[in-house]
């Protein structure tokens, strides 16, 4: 059982390219359909958990499913499984990259790729913007986050905390307002 857990997440780590969201269908296929470790409802919880807790979705889901199956030990094995392929593959690639990074043609290629990556980040921002609730608070906070970081006024962590604290104040004031009605 523990080995199956490890092996399943190892495969998920090995065959997922890109962000953690690409992993969701795989996780459903194995953890819900094949091994029945979690129910469909719990699966939906995982997505909600991943969106409401810090950290990569891959790690959040491995830890959660591992915990449901076999407690803390299960969590550790599932997480190790999902992380291990990356450590091996990236270490090999990093060693290889260091050999070739100063080659002039590699540099030309990466000059193009850097523009591609900037576009990937821009598209991620657009995608996340579309998923937001649109209201005055969120437009205000987008501008705050954008301006403070673009002009290097505050470190990212403080900016995130400013957003979180503003959100909490808004929530408390709003909930109290609704209670009064």
């Amino acid at each position: 059982m523990l080995f199956t857990l490890f092996w399943t997440f190892f495969k998920i780590g090995l065959f997922t390219f890109g962000g953690g969201y690409a992993m969701i269908p795989f996780i459903h296929q194995y953890a819900v359909e094949k091994y029945k470790w979690i129910t469909d409802d719990e699966f939906l919880d995982i997505i909600a958990i991943a969106e409401s807790t810090p950290g990569p979705i891959a790690i959040n889901s491995a830890t959660y499913i591992g915990y449901k199956v076999k407690g803390v030990g299960g969590s550790a094995l599932a997480t190790l499984g999902v992380v291990l392929p990356s450590i091996v593959i990236i270490t090999l690639i990093a060693a290889f990259f260091m050999q070739f990074k100063d080659n002039v043609y590699v540099e030309y290629t990466f000059k193009g790729i850097r523009i591609g990556v900037a576009i990937l980040v821009l598209n991620a921002a657009i995608r996340m913007y579309k998923k937001l609730d649109k209201n005055l608070l969120s437009f205000f906070l987008i501008l705050v986050g954008f301006g403070l970081i673009l002009f290097e006024i505050l470190p990212v962590i403080y900016v995130i905390l400013i957003g979180g604290i503003t959100g909490i104040i808004y929530q408390l004031v709003k909930v109290r307002g609704e209670d009064n009605v």
């Binding site: 921002a125 937001l132 986050g145 970081i149 808004y170 929530q171």
Partner: peptide
């Protein structure tokens, strides 16, 4: 409340990056 504020601020931060 925390997430309500963090989500938009993170979008702004990613736009700036």
């Amino acid at each position: 409340g925390f997430l309500r504020g963090v989500k938009p601020v993170v979008v702004g931060v990613i736009f700036s990056v």
